[in-house]
Design a protein around this nucleic acid. Structure first.
Lengths: 219, 219
DNA sequence: CGCCGACTTGACATTAATCAAATGTAGTGG
DNA sequence: CCACTACATTTGATTAATGTCAAGTCGGCG
């Protein structure tokens, strides 16, 4: 991050205790007071809102190395809930202490703004996905996105486990479970991927990319 | 905003020149270098991304009093384009100068983080809208949203002008123009609103609210 | 072994997109 | 001022995509 050693040390000091969150447990709930940001050390999470009917809308899947809770800064209350998709571990970052540090360390401030801003862009991309794309494009884009995030973090880009159910994928993409299932089967038949339960292998990334962009000729 | 007088003065000083943007003109384009945030003084804007096919996806409509450009902080390049929906005026806020000020004035920092965070929440709400709602609910939610934003800024909640075309509404909501048009006619027939060109009167806000929430009994 | 939840597959229904055409409106230039 | 053009909007008919319902399979776990 380009921080000086002693700045890094100060950052280290405010990073609070580690917290384990078992699969299915909430890290925070809607309405909880906002005091911490959370850096995921290990595992995966989903975040979701509830609308007035009690339906859930998954707003994102987060993996180790990513930050949770930035949407709550504005209101001092959490507006969405975060649940672990598997046994996970986070670091608690008391936000008020972080704020003090941000004033002192311009580099850190810049980095923090960058992360918030990237969250905004990420969501704008999801808006694009949800409103412009066909089901097939949505799923391809989703898989490509996961793939590149794993690649960024040093894992294989073409072979990983889905940590979420088909239902959760469908909810996130605005598709019925059945559609997700059918599309996966379809992609498999077309030779673009292999899927067995949660185990996934992307065998034709270039085609998946062009499908995601809506530029594949054979669709 | 709860700023001390001299802090407010310092903020005033970094706010650069005003800039007029005529209807249809771009405030910034995709790929432009990011140096400024923009506070809208007058008028309305739309922001949109382009996907690889050249299709546009409108990511938001902004009105006087709102801030533009926060999505670009992360990349130093603009990822979306902002176009004026009518003759408008903005204040340029050089971001590097703002950053310095943020380090000095904790209250301002907190306020700034709040605005970014609210942008994140706003977009999460749009995700909810795009993926969970029926066409009818989307449009109702959209109108309610506009209404409450006008109300916040001291304008009538139940009577205002649409500054965007039906096509732009449809693009934003993930609907065809024809669907938007049909729905407006439908709402009118049901007595929920009056619409004449861009002039809009919401005559039954309670019902519109319950339609937006998917809890209206007669739908 | 048997239950349960996740997943798959097929048949059908529904929503909203697309296509087509008519109407209206704002802006332009003669 | 008016005719003309381009664009925005509305409405109807049809189609395509995806949701819903139903049934059944698969695998893990008590």
């Amino acid at each position: 991050m380009g921080l000086a050693d002693d700045d890094l040390q100060r950052l280290d000091q405010i990073i609070g205790r580690r917290r384990r969150v078992l699969r299915g447990e909430s890290l925070y709930r809607i309405g909880d007071e906002f005091t911490m940001l959370y850096a995921i050390r290990l595992g995966h999470f989903k975040t979701f809102q509830s609308n007035s009917n009690g339906n859930h809308q998954i707003t994102g899947f987060q993996m180790a190395g990513e930050l949770l809770g930035m949407d709550a800064i504005g209101t001092s209350r959490h507006l969405c809930e975060a649940i672990a998709l598997e046994d996970s571990e986070v670091c608690e970052i008391p936000f008020s202490q972080l704020e003090e540090l941000l004033s002192d360390i311009p580099t850190l401030l810049r980095h923090f703004h960058r992360m918030m801003s990237q969250e905004i862009s990420r969501e704008q991309n999801v808006m694009l996905l949800l409103s412009n794309m066909k089901a097939q494009e949505k799923l391809a884009a989703f898989l490509i996105n996961l793939s590149s995030r794993y690649a960024t973090r040093g894992y294989a880009a073409n072979r990983f486990q889905l940590r979420m159910t088909r239902e959760e994928i469908g909810n996130y993409l605005g598709l019925a479970v059945e559609s997700v299932s059918r599309l996966l089967s379809d992609f498999k038949k077309k030779g673009w991927l292999n899927v067995n339960h949660r185990e996934l292998e992307l065998t034709d990334l270039p085609t998946l990319r062009s499908v995601a962009m809506g530029t594949d000729p054979c669709t």
